[in-house]
Every structure is written in C-alpha cells, then in structure tokens.
Computed example of a mutant assay.
Amino acid sequence: MRHLRALCAIADAGSLHKAARQLGMSQPSLTTQLRRIENSLGAELFSRGRTGCRPTPLGRSLLSRARPLVADMAALVTETRAAAARAAGPGLRVGSTASRALPGWLRRLRQRLPGTEVGLRVDVSAHGLLRMVAAGQLDVAFVHEVEGCPLRVPEGLVERVLVAREPQFVSMARDHPAAARPVVDLTDLADDHWMVDPTVDGEWDGLRRVLHAAGIDPPLLHGDYHTAASLIVLGEAVAPCQPTSGPRDDMAVRPLRGDPLAVRLLLYARPGAPLDVLYAELAAAYREAALRATPYREWLRSQGTAAGLSVGPCLTAV
C-alpha cells in the first residue's frame, strides 16, 4: 500500500520533487523507491523529462487500479481511528506548524475544555497536517500559507482565517549593520547568506520569488531554523522569521520595508469540532504573542487599522 500511495502521489504531483514533499520524504528516497518498484515489475511506470514525470501506458493502467485501493484503505483507516477515538473518551487532537501562539493556545484550550485530553502534533508541513485532519488523525490544524504558494486543502474541511496577511520579518546578528535601523531594505541584505528551510511548504518558493522581485540574488543556505539560529548569531546568515519571534540578546528581528514576505494564518477543522471555541482561544493566544514581541507591536502601532490587518476578533493595533 505504501508503494501504491507513492505512485499516486507522483502521478498527481507531476514530479518526484513535489511528490516527495507531499509524502514527507526526501526526493532521493522517493526516487530509490520508484526504481525498486519498476525493477520488481520489469518496466517503467513513469517517463522522466525536464518537465517532470508522466505515467507510461503501463503506469496509467496500474494507477487506474491503484487509486481505488488507496482510497478504500484511507477510508478504512479513518473509520477505524474515529471508532477508537470514540471508545477512548473525549479528546482533542491538535496539529500546528511552528507558532509562538501555540503554548498559549494549548493552555487556554485546557482551561476552556476541562476534562478533555488535548494532544499535540507539530510539523513543518502544512500539507501533511491538513491530510491528517482529512484522514481523521487530527481534529484541527493551525497552519500558515506562504503568499503566492496556495495550499492544497482536502475536501470537507472547515476553514477560518486568523490573519489575512502576516508580515514576515528578518532575523540577523545583533551587530549586523542593518540591525541599527528600525526597518530593513532587502537590498541591505543582498550580500548576506540567506537561510531557508526547504521542507516548509512554500517557504523556499516564496523567498525566491521575493528576492527575484527585489533584483537580488544572494547566496542561499538550506537547513532547519534551529540550525539557522546558531549561524545567525555568528553573523554567518540571515533568515526570514515570524514577527512574533521573541527577543534575544544576541539576535535582532526587524521588519522588511514594504512587507514583501507574508503568510496567511489559517485554522482548519473536521466537521463537528468545536470550531468557535478553537478559533476564539487561538485568536486570544495570538494577540498575546503578537503584543509581547516588541518589533511586531511597534509594527502594528505604525500600521494602525488602515493596514487591513485581520487577526481574529480581538487583535488590534495598540
């Protein structure tokens, strides 16, 4: 079944790179898996070219029989997990991409829903979390959507928009020349190494688009943001970051002029989840995190309500 899911993902994505990201694995691992499948069958299932992967006639025949099997297995797993969850008693399974609002949200949910066990899964992939909600593995997911890189949302999920456009700031060493200014131009960072996590859905594509629009082509480093932090404080790199990032003595967080980098913050839930409660408590937790971060608080003050910032029912520029 794992092989069949991989074949369907490759066909749907049209490329090994995109399919690997959807499946939460590396492209070399997926390439190796496809090669093993084809070797075992003795024939190619996909033709590879500069434009991506396309099923061969044999591949199309196999996919026509594989898709119903994959769908039936997904439905069986979803129904079984739902039955197990009902038998286990009241619980709330929360998924989230990284967010400074997450601790406050969990605290508020446990206070608002006493007697309900609140579980948590944090993942860099918004697409992975949404698939888990659709499959019944999670009840709700709080995710971000990089501007210009829309998420592929499974059918049947209920959506609430928490923040229509959250600006992304940039983190740099405290002694970086640009850190002396309250607002930074992208061109001021043209000679810096930029670090980005390519496993975060849309992150690399969104940053590349913005840098290209600014007419700069800085050297890039790929890695997770925990590694990035250690390089940033040494002055070896700069990186995009959430505006709610907390203060550090060895790192500066600054807004970018014109706010070229942005995301939407979205809440998705399965039908029947207590969405109003989930949304209200998340909005309150986000407000706390936003106003606690000095650069973001000052940015909100400078923008006022004219910026069109739509953040829940309770976040306003103060």
Rank of each mutant, 00 (worst) to 15 (best):
R2L: 14
H3R: 15
R5T: 14
C8L: 15
A9L: 00
D12W: 03
G14P: 12
G14I: 10
L16I: 11
K18L: 14
K18G: 08
A19L: 11
A19N: 09
Q22A: 13
L23I: 08
Q27V: 06
T31Y: 05
T32Q: 13
L34Q: 06
I37V: 15
S40R: 15
S40E: 14
A43H: 11
L45Q: 09
F46W: 05
S47K: 13
R50T: 13
R50H: 13
T51N: 09
P55V: 08
P57M: 07
G59C: 07
G59A: 09
L62M: 12
L62S: 04
L63K: 03
S64Q: 13
P68D: 10
P68A: 04
A71T: 14
D72K: 11
D72A: 15
D72L: 12
M73S: 13
A74W: 05
T78S: 14
A84E: 14
G89S: 10
G91P: 03
T97N: 06
A98C: 09
A98S: 15
A101C: 01
P103E: 05
R107S: 13
R108A: 14
L109F: 03
R110T: 12
R112C: 04
E117F: 01
V118P: 02
G119R: 03
R121D: 02
V124Y: 03
S125D: 05
A126W: 05
L129C: 03
R131F: 10
D139F: 06
F142Y: 11
V143E: 03
H144W: 08
V146R: 06
L151Y: 07
E155Y: 06
G156E: 10
V158C: 10
E159N: 05
V161T: 14
R165K: 12
Q168A: 08
F169M: 10
V170T: 06
S171L: 12
A173D: 07
D175W: 08
H176L: 05
P177W: 02
A178Y: 04
A178L: 04
A178Q: 10
R181N: 10
P182A: 11
D185G: 07
D188I: 00
D191L: 15
M195W: 07
P198I: 09
P198F: 02
T199P: 00
G202H: 03
G202T: 09
D205Y: 07
G206P: 08
R209N: 09
A213C: 09
A214H: 13
G215E: 13
D217Y: 11
P218F: 07
P218M: 08
L220F: 04
H222P: 03
G223Q: 08
D224P: 11
T227S: 09
I232Y: 02
V233W: 04
L234M: 11
G235N: 02
E236K: 10
V238P: 07
R248K: 03
M251N: 01
R254V: 09
P255A: 02
R257M: 01
G258W: 05
D259E: 15
P260G: 04
L261K: 06
R264L: 10
L266E: 09
L267C: 13
A269Q: 04
A273I: 09
A273H: 01
P274G: 00
L275C: 06
L278E: 04
A280C: 07
E281Q: 09
L282K: 04
L282F: 10
A284Y: 08
Y286W: 13
E288F: 06
A289P: 04
T294D: 14
E298L: 12
E298Y: 05
W299T: 11
W299F: 13
S302W: 10
T305M: 02
A306W: 01
T316H: 14
V318C: 07
